[in-house]
Design a protein around this nucleic acid. Structure first.
Lengths: 216, 216
DNA sequence: GTCTATACGTTGATAGAC
DNA sequence: GTCTATCAACGTATAGAC
């Protein structure tokens, strides 16, 4: 009788592994989103995942490893979703599309947004690499696109860098502060329609504010 | 020889008490801002405050009490700062003033903003009271002001509720995500000038986006 | 009012039976 | 591959000397 080697490359290694890792990552994401890295316990994650605590260490060596895995998943998902926006695009259309995509992300993956937010508020030590590489390139690329549009007279000469922060902040808000938004508007949760209204409003104000005409 | 009674009403009770409570609250705010409620330990706060751990329990009974005290301080500061904005005001001026005030708060009290943000992301259980009373009243009052301006034809018919979220989210972002902003823009910290530029840009885009003319 | 010593639960992590 | 049993370290909180 032979046992499979618990290698992380594991092609034949298994269906079970894959499924368990998924369950653990999901449970971990939920907990990290609520309590941050330090505030989350492996025990709670294990309970939520329905697995004995020791299994988490079997799959992820230690707490930091699990946390990094969660963050990596989020960044990968992020990159896959927001690699659009080029100078050749129509500004109004491209901005609208970006805002809708980011809001859709806030709606479907609020936990991911929150883990990210918590990590940054906590100092973002685990994201140093990301911010000095991939994100920085993405960021400067987008700022250049906005600048190109401005130079071509397609939009007002706003500050491209601060425009990105505005897009980021205003959309991120609907994921991170959903609790506050619900409480104050008397809802129990944000519906698809709420998010639609929010997107419409953001697009309307930000596009007009940049001297662009919304294309419905 | 008599000892002063450690009552929280304490008029004559003391200079020492007042000073120590201040030091503890400041240290606690810093820690809670970085690690949230669960992730913060009394020991770390005590070390940062330069006091023995037992003293914290003398002044604040327990961890939750200390946390609530920090939150209360923040809300009080908040209320004192943002009770402006009435229907009689000039929309452009009032909005500009609000954005500048909120950004100034993000600059001078980033830790307060972060404690608040962490608490809300964590579910905001400790803020239920606040959100079902004071804040809700403030919120509906401001929404009514915007609606009055819209009805008077002074600004575009944007969604008042989502406008408040836009104001909130875009300004809050400069406190909560300062780390990210610094990393990506290659700065070590946000200067007064950075925040000034950010405010100018927000005012420019949001006011124009609402059909208002910025009054410099 | 202040601080040392300590009680006692929870934490991350591992050893080793199955 | 899975899970129980266990450990040392750290968590909150308090008792009681000063």
């Amino acid at each position: 009788m032979t046992f499979e080697i618990p290698a992380h490359d594991g092609k034949p290694a298994g269906r079970i592994r894959q499924k368990n890792e998924e369950v653990i990552l999901k449970a971990a994401e939920d907990e990290f989103a609520r309590h941050g890295f330090k505030g989350t316990s492996m025990n709670t994650i294990a309970l939520k995942a329905g697995l004995p605590k020791a299994n988490l260490h079997y799959y992820f060596t230690n707490k930091l490893g699990l946390y990094i895995a969660v963050l990596s998943n989020i960044i990968e998902l992020w990159d896959r979703t927001f690699n659009t926006l080029t100078a050749a695009d129509d500004p109004a259309q491209a901005l609208s599309r970006y805002i809708r995509a980011k809001m859709e992300f806030s709606r479907q993956q609020p936990q991911a947004s929150r883990v990210f937010a918590m990590e940054i508020i906590s100092g973002g030590a685990c994201l140093t690499e990301y911010f000095t590489q991939d994100y920085r390139i993405w960021f400067q690329g987008r700022a250049a696109v906005f600048q190109a549009w401005i130079d071509a007279g397609k939009m007002d000469p706003v500050d491209p860098v601060h425009l990105i922060f505005l897009l980021w902040g205003s959309t991120q808000h609907y994921a991170d502060f959903a609790t506050q938004i619900c409480r104050v508007s008397g809802r129990s949760r944000l519906t698809r329609q709420d998010m639609q209204d929010a997107s419409d409003n953001l697009i309307r104000i930000i596009l007009k504010g940049c001297g662009l005409t919304p294309t419905v």
